[in-house]
């Protein structure tokens, strides 16, 4: 196709004609290049989102497909369960703590590395390396480390600790406010999962922040220094505000990672006693593929999608607006 059009264009002499044919070629080229991804995305992402939404409104709760309309029955069934209520508590608690920890640790590491230390690339690789490990590996290893009978507790015991933490086996929830069937608060078991997740993902926050820090021009910092600002003052008033866009990016990506967390939980703790470490994704998997309750599983997926959208859509709107402003 291309080899035919190029010599054709060269033979054309009138500028008007050439311009016209160039535009249509560009159009044609961009459409043909984009079409496969648009079609694939349309079918395999958006098509199946609608399909899942449709299934969640049916009675398909066994191997035998049953597409009779059930209304919102599956949503009521799912929301009624102790398990799903626990899931919602867990995912909110986990996401908030996970993002805060990753940002604080990631930014701290990025600032340390940005001090033009020796062997910078070595440190950078060390901090980012956990990201190269699959969540399943992380989960298994941390479940060994944090097993209260055999793991790090043996070290603590040798150091003379009396009240050893029971890590992800703890069923304590702090501050433990009873709402409906469940207790609202921070399940201590989730903190153990959090340690593993932060270990894995704070390197990612570091890398993005490092890129952000490198983007801040030295001129501004220098000017501030000449004006007599100290290091803290420069950090709070110059660097942090400049990192706002970076922080938004980090938050969005980490939120998505956190809401989808599955492999880590599956390998490390499972749903946990009283579902203290359960997540909607885990619940969805077991409901759908072990219980064969496809409609209920689809309902959980849709709720998960809506939670995710609540975070992502405002971000998309704000990026689009920014694009228009500039």
């Amino acid at each position: 196709m291309k080899s035919e059009t190029v010599p054709l264009k060269q033979t054309q002499r009138t500028t008007k004609l050439r311009k016209h044919s160039k535009i249509s070629w560009d159009h044609f080229f961009s459409i043909t290049t984009l079409a496969p991804s648009i079609i694939l995305l349309g079918v395999f992402v958006y098509g199946f989102i609608f399909w899942t939404g449709y299934v969640s409104l049916t009675n398909w709760n066994s191997f035998i497909p049953d597409f009779s309309f059930a209304g919102l029955k599956n949503y009521f069934l799912v929301f009624e369960t102790f398990r799903f209520q626990s899931d919602l508590r867990n995912i909110v608690v986990f996401t908030i703590l996970f993002i805060i920890s990753c940002i604080v640790i990631g930014l701290f590491l990025a600032i340390l590395i940005d001090q033009k230390v020796k062997a910078e690339s070595l440190f950078r690789s060390i901090f980012i390396f956990p990201m190269a490990v699959s969540f399943v590996v992380t989960g298994v290893i941390w479940s060994w480390i944090l097993n209260p009978e055999t793991g790090v507790n043996l070290v603590l015991k040798a150091m003379g600790w009396k009240h050893l933490p029971s890590w992800f086996l703890s069923t304590t929830i702090v501050p433990n406010i009873t709402v409906g069937q469940i207790q609202i608060g921070i399940p201590l078991a989730l903190l153990a999962v959090l340690i593993a997740a932060v270990w894995q993902m704070s390197g990612f926050a570091m890398a993005v922040y490092l890129a952000g820090l490198r983007g801040i021009s030295d001129d501004i910092k220098e000017a501030a220094r000449i004006d007599g600002a100290g290091s803290w003052r420069i950090f709070w008033s110059i660097i942090l505000p400049q990192l706002r866009a970076t922080t938004t990016t980090v938050i969005i990506i980490l939120t998505a990672a956190s809401l989808k967390v599955f492999g880590l939980i599956y390998a490390m703790t499972g749903p946990g006693q009283e579902f203290v470490t359960d997540m909607p994704s885990m619940n969805m998997f077991q409901t759908t593929f072990q219980g064969n309750q496809f409609a209920q599983g689809a309902a959980i997926s849709v709720v998960l999608l809506l939670i995710m959208a609540a975070f992502i859509v405002p971000y998309l709107i704000s990026t689009l607006k920014q694009g228009e402003d500039e």
């Binding site: 990201m131 190269a132 490990v133 699959s134 969540f135 990612f204 890398a207 993005v208 890129a211 952000g212 490198r214 983007g215 801040i216 400049q242 866009a245 970076t246 990016t249 990506i253 990672a257 989808k260 492999g263 500039e326």
Partner: peptide, 22 residues
């Protein structure tokens, strides 16, 4: 804009690593 570009590029690269891992 430049800064956004850098960080987005980093995000894209790392995101694809994360996705492959998943």
């Amino acid at each position: 804009k430049k800064k956004m570009g850098v960080s987005l590029a980093a995000v894209a690269a790392l995101g694809s690593i994360a996705l492959t891992g998943c």
